[in-house]
């Protein structure tokens, strides 16, 4: 592996980590709300969350390219606040990844939350626990499996992101040239050996991450209710 390839690998891990942390913060309340709400707009929100599963990443990338351009309100606002653009930047890739991996965080969490019965939560409340207290001491431990699944899937899915990054990244070393782009470039240049070593790393990484989830879920079954 060459130095640029290491840079790409490291950048990819950093991107997946940051996106996962942000999604954990946004996804948890969203999933909780979806699991509890009785509002009529719930299916609409669920459909929006699931959209990145079915949309080609190039569609998302194309919209982001237009939406985040400095010509638009969002793009120019970001530019005036931070001094750099959203497209062709690490921040832009994080934003894209958050959108792209949203269902991978929200869906496992939502189904974990849905299995928590109302009874224990009401019981905690009747014992004088605040909603937050009840959430932390009852709901969180009961949905540990859901959290592990959500976090790991989000991380792994972000590792493999390609289409959006290709559209809004601009292939800048150390900022937006992630591992999937590096593989693509190596294949196109007929550097098959280099493409192989990078692909193998990504394959091994993704497999071990998924293996971890399945082993974890088997070994620590969580009893709910």
């Amino acid at each position: 592996m060459t130095a640029p390839d290491f840079t790409a690998l490291f950048l990819t891990l950093r991107l997946a980590f940051v996106a996962t942390v942000i999604l954990l913060v946004i996804g948890t309340p969203l999933a909780w709300w979806l699991a509890r709400t009785r509002t009529k707009v719930k299916p609409v929100v669920e459909a929006l969350v699931a959209l990145p599963l079915v949309l080609p990443p190039t569609v998302l990338g194309f919209y982001l390219l237009i939406l985040l351009s400095p010509q638009t309100a969002i793009g120019s606002f970001w530019l005036s606040v931070t001094g750099s653009t959203l497209t062709f930047s690490f921040a832009g890739l994080v934003l894209a990844s958050v959108l792209y991996s949203l269902p991978f965080m929200v869906q496992p969490l939502q189904s974990a939350f849905e299995t928590i019965a109302r009874k224990p939560m009401e019981l905690a409340a009747s014992l004088g626990a605040s909603p937050w207290d009840a959430f932390v001491s009852v709901a969180l431990p009961a949905s540990a499996r859901g959290f592990v699944t959500a976090i790991v899937l989000t991380f792994a899915h972000t590792l493999g992101e390609f289409g959006i990054v290709l559209m809004v990244g601009g292939n800048i070393p150390d900022r937006t040239r992630v591992i999937s782009i590096a593989v693509y470039e190596n294949v196109e240049q007929l550097n098959y050996a280099q493409a192989h070593s990078l692909s193998l790393i990504l394959l091994a990484l993704s497999f071990s991450v998924l293996l971890f989830v399945y082993i974890f879920n088997k070994r620590f079954p969580v009893h709910v209710g």
Binding site: L65, I66, F88, M167, G170, N171, I172, E185
Partner: peptide, 20 residues
């Protein structure tokens, strides 16, 4: 300052959409 499209069509899109 260089942003690279995977082909010249993509470089064109970068400019046309005002990103570059």
């Amino acid at each position: 300052k260089l942003v690279r499209g995977s082909n010249v069509a993509q470089a064109f899109v970068f400019v046309q959409t005002g990103n570059a």
